[in-house]
């Protein structure tokens, strides 16, 4: 099976405390550590496991700039055969539909049996996968947490629904699936693996390479734009204990006791 996984590089919020920049129109990006969007990494692992069983190749693609090559290489070190950077000034300011439009053009110039995205980007809206499917007129399923290849024509997939229940569907290929975290255990990537793929060339494709009409992407095509970031005023907010650790420990035990805890 030929599988395309759409991936995105995002600020790693488990590593960083986010701050707003002075203009309030963005987060402070200078000292941020970036990494691959978490569910996208699970999507790549799932794709690799599928081709290990059925044969084929995994390609990873991202719409972004030069800096984003880093995540393509990381996923190539995991085992993806090819990385593709979809990059053009005209893509700047794209909304979700714009990103999906760019990805669609790339897919149409190639052949994939299966396209995976993450459920949601950390700075995203859980939209690109479903839009890409609709633009391609492929079937779509979101929140996928299991994939079984039935035959060359279809898959049996599980979707995570409320309460941890699983909705099982059959879906025809080619299709687009958005992958939920926890579907597998992504393999570890060490520095050695990254070095091994360091010299593989990553093609960069522009709007004209892809045949993307510039008016449909970037700021020109965006119907939805972010105006600013802000940190909302705290609700009632917690009473923050100001004591030393020992004092705080005692206080918490006391509070829990008062509410019927501690035998």
């Amino acid at each position: 099976m030929e599988i395309l996984v759409c991936i995105k590089r995002v600020p790693d919020t488990s590593e960083n405390e986010l701050q707003l920049n002075t203009g309030g129109n963005d987060i402070e990006r200078d000292d941020l550590v970036y990494s691959i969007n978490e569910p996208d990494n699970y999507a790549v692992e799932e794709a690799l496991q599928i081709v290990a069983r059925t044969g084929g190749n995994v390609t990873v693609a991202t719409v972004g700039g030069e800096d984003d090559e880093e995540v393509l290489r990381r996923e190539m070190a995991m085992g993806a055969k090819q990385g593709v950077l979809l990059s053009d000034e005209a893509f700047n300011g794209s909304d979700g539909k714009g990103i999906a439009t760019i990805l669609k053009s790339y897919v149409e110039k190639n052949h994939y049996d299966l396209i995976l995205t993450g459920v949601q980007a950390d700075d995203g809206a859980a939209q690109v996968g479903g839009m890409l499917a609709a633009l391609l007129d492929y079937p779509f399923a979101s929140l996928v947490n299991s994939i079984e290849v039935v035959d060359g024509q279809k898959l049996r997939i599980g979707r995570e629904i409320e309460g941890g229940n699983k909705e099982v569907n059959e879906i025809d290929l080619p299709c687009v699936l958005s992958i939920q975290t926890g579907i597998n255990e992504p393999r570890y990537v060490g520095m050695k693996g990254i070095r091994q793929v360091a010299s593989i060339e990553i093609p960069a494709l522009s709007a004209s390479d892809l045949g993307v009409a510039e008016a449909t992407v970037g700021e020109a095509g965006a119907k939805v734009t972010r105006i600013d970031y802000f940190v909302p005023a705290l609700g009632k907010g917690a009473e923050i204990l100001q004591g030393g650790r020992e004092e705080n420990v005692e206080k918490v035990i006391e509070l829990v006791k008062a509410r019927g805890g501690v035998n």
């Binding site: 707003l20 972010r226 802000f230």
Partner: peptide
């Protein structure tokens, strides 16, 4: 962690 205003 942060909120955003969006214009649609």
């Amino acid at each position: 962690q942060v909120s955003a205003h969006v214009r649609c």
